[in-house]
Design a protein around this nucleic acid. Structure first.
Lengths: 212, 212
DNA sequence: GTGGCTATGTAAGTGATACTTACATATGTA
DNA sequence: TACATATGTAAGTATCACTTACATAGCCAC
């Protein structure tokens, strides 16, 4: 069980006084809680209880609750970047399916980890100007921009690539939210959407003017 | 200062013991707080303070915090339906601009009331099976479906109308989220998006197969 | 080893919150 | 006017975020 921040997990028995691995185990507990009860209804206290330490212990590793959430979000975004990169490797550069696969990865993440998805995007509210998060976000979106640029035969810094990538992002992002919020199913939109969405992305990616 | 639920506001001086209008004033206070500090960081206690009553008073009007939020969301959705209906009246049936105007109204709502937007969609997490909210949501989406069906010359219960309306919803919804989360601007997507989005909606609404 | 420095844990508080309970006071209606 | 009901208060419970003072473990120089 490798951890993306370098700390070692695995030794799950706590050794009397000193725990040895609290930070990582706290994040693990918080992630569980976020999925179980939502990002707004979990408490640091309960995460501490799950890790078998006192309610003050977490504050040796994190300044406050927000910092815990930020660390979790960073971890999740790292994983996201990793799985997107893995997906990229399965298709040749420029392939449309590469782009569609990225979208599917995004939607799958939301469906499989709705609590984390909410957290990642809900956190913007309280961490508005955070540099680390912004950088991580740019790295993620950058992957999409490059894939789109390659497909269109554009340079990655051509605004047209950003423009089209952004439109694809809105679709995938909107669908992810509506899905985890149950809106899609609730409104009778239960037919398979993946083909539909990739058809739309084909339109958006068609050569020609995107509406400048 | 008319209230959409029929209770009268306006007499803002509280009359000694009995307040006369607590429910409406609480909702007003909560809405302010939600915009100021976010849906997760407001407290019933503070709303009560703003309304000039004890912290126990709200519980004469609402069972718990969740019920307050639900009432607020219902109010917001009502307003949304009203303004969407108003927009509809400005364009002839079947007009594409009618549909685009609906989308713009949605995005404007998110931009102007990000706290409420977050609340409306964030609430699904805790009110998953709520009938009233589902019904209200269906009414809202129904407006879009009808406009799309009229434009395409389809019956409103044709699944193709729902399908296309849903795609438009994902775009508008995704863009709204990314905008209020600051992602759009953060990623350098600051060029005017309204034309771009309406160009995309034209693609989605074009006659022909949408990717069945 | 021993002494001491630092990292990491605990216990016991502080102040705020959601919500409850017992009681008080208006208001409307028989 | 009396009484039922609606609506408010005060005080209390349990929980939480976070702090402070103290304890212990690991580690390094010597």
């Amino acid at each position: 069980m490798a951890q993306s921040d370098g700390t070692q997990t695995g030794n799950s028995k706590r050794d009397a006084y000193h725990h040895g691995n609290l930070r990582a185990q706290l994040l693990e507990a918080v992630e569980q809680l976020v999925e179980e009860k939502g990002a707004e209804n979990f408490s640091i206290a309960e995460a501490a209880r799950r890790a078998g330490v006192s309610s003050a212990a977490p504050y040796r590793h994190f300044a406050d609750k927000d910092e815990v959430l930020k660390a979790l979000v960073m971890q999740a975004m790292n994983r996201m970047i990793e799985s997107m990169s893995a997906v990229m490797a399965e298709f040749p550069p420029g392939d449309v399916d590469r782009i569609n696969a990225l979208g599917r990865e995004y939607i799958d993440f939301a469906r499989d980890h709705p609590g984390m998805f909410r957290l990642v995007f809900g956190i913007s509210e309280s961490h508005d100007g955070d540099e680390d998060l912004a950088e991580q976000g740019a790295a993620t979106f950058g992957i999409v921009i490059r894939a789109v640029a390659e497909h269109l035969g554009l340079s990655a810094d051509d605004p047209e690539a950003t423009r089209r990538a952004y439109i694809l992002w809105t679709i995938v992002h909107g669908h992810s939210w509506l899905t985890i919020d149950g809106k899609a199913k609730q409104q009778g939109v239960d037919f398979p959407l993946s083909e539909m969405l990739s058809a739309v992305s084909n339109m958006v990616l068609a050569q020609g003017d995107s509406g400048r």
